[in-house]
Design a protein around this nucleic acid. Structure first.
Lengths: 232, 232
DNA sequence: TCGCGTCTGTTAGAGGCTCTAACAAGAGAA
DNA sequence: TTCTCTTGTTAGAGCCTCTAACAGACGCGA
């Protein structure tokens, strides 16, 4: 469970505040797990904490605010899981690292499908307002992926000039996000990889493969192999 | 807008009933479009129809029931759009048909993102109960895809014996769904294709590419080409 | 054509939710 | 010690879903 970014540096008051916020989020995630976003209820959290409902509005300005924090936390957790897996316990080869990345991505989604859904299934309408926070939160995970893919093909040469519009857009993206030197080709591979993994993972956690009687594992392996082949 | 499957064969009473149900669903879809599933309100629909809220419970046993009908309708509409596009106005080559399929899939999702979300983003918890209806509804679309892919590689030979577990699962799936002779290899290509398209589409409609400043079109084209290459 | 019974609507209300307002009591700081 | 800000309380407005009890209308069979 990720903590609020700002550490409880202040006095006792602040410390207590952070503690309560964390407890609320913990219960919120549990509610999310069994019942989806619509089951998240400030009132019910209050009851579970032995406190009146409105009391929690001292800690979160609204239900949507709470949900947004959960999204940001989820991004952090996912990024951490990916970074840990690709760093690995022992030295990993480049293809091994990609496999580890894919496996970690899938595992995280399967362990906490409700949180994965939170990241990619737009639980709130008109969420563009918060977009900035979320974009920042997703950056971490993207950096891990870019790192893994870069190792696969060291040729991250800036030779390829930006000829297609897409190349230009990719370049602009990596610059504006301040991503460590990323060629358009690499960026494209990252987007494709992410998209394919997300396709499989999201179908899996919604039970589409299960309802077809298919084991998702070999499907995953096949896609990872396809990605590896395309990346060399 | 899809109709309720059963035609209004009965008397005037039934005809009226079907009419009201259709109107309710129409408004429901509009609510969905601006506000997501959580904005769908039986009460509000009643108000808009100039009728009290509880009146509508004569037509839909619950809010979730209404939502389920919307999901089924959406599946039908998507399948129809895919079938129409791949049939085409003029004779299409096999690769052209796949391109048409992918384009239609993407277009449908972009035109009605809220309904696409309904299909793949599990708006209701504990939805497995309804799974049977939904599985049946999705069959149509799958048949279109299988048909398109089969034309790409006429070698739909039953030569390939089922050696891997996945092959066996795929075979069992196509049999249990009563899909027109589908080899495991073809079934696998269908699943992969579907998964890749869904990955791109779902990221696109949630605005992930937009927030990266990327035009999804070339990304799509690249994936379609990759699918074509893998299928020949 | 006539009455019957079903179907379709009504309101009342229970119980849930979010969120605001007004107020009480505490703990930390001066 | 006193003051002030923080954190809690309850009341209540305004939503929601859904059930219950009841009233009226309309199609259908005789």
């Amino acid at each position: 469970m990720a903590q609020t970014p700002d550490p409880p540096v202040g006095g006792l008051r602040d410390r207590f505040r952070a503690q309560v916020r964390s407890e609320v989020k913990q219960i919120a995630v549990r509610q999310l797990a069994d019942g989806g976003p619509q089951a998240l209820s400030i009132n019910a959290i209050g009851k579970e904490l032995g406190v009146s409902g409105p009391a929690l509005y001292r800690y979160f300005s609204s239900r949507d605010d709470l949900l947004t924090e959960l999204v940001v936390d989820a991004y952090h957790d996912l990024a951490t899981a990916l970074a840990t897996a690709t760093r690995g316990t022992r030295r990993l080869s480049a293809p091994e690292r990609l496999r580890a990345f894919a496996a970690a991505y899938r595992d995280w989604a399967n362990t906490e499908p409700h949180r994965y859904r939170l990241l990619f299934a737009a639980p709130l309408p008109g969420y563009d307002a918060q977009a900035a926070r979320l974009v920042a939160a997703s950056r971490e995970a993207m950096i891990v992926l870019l790192d893994v893919l870069a190792a696969l093909t060291p040729d991250n040469g800036k030779a390829g000039s930006t000829d297609t519009p897409l190349d230009g857009q990719l370049e602009h993206w990596s610059h504006s996000r301040e991503l460590p030197d990323v060629s358009p080709a690499l960026a494209l591979r990252a987007v494709t990889t992410w998209s394919r993994l997300h396709g499989l993972v999201s179908l899996e956690i919604e039970g589409n493969f299960a309802s077809m009687g298919l084991d998702p594992e070999p499907l995953f392996d096949a896609e990872v192999i396809a990605i590896l082949n395309a990346s060399t």
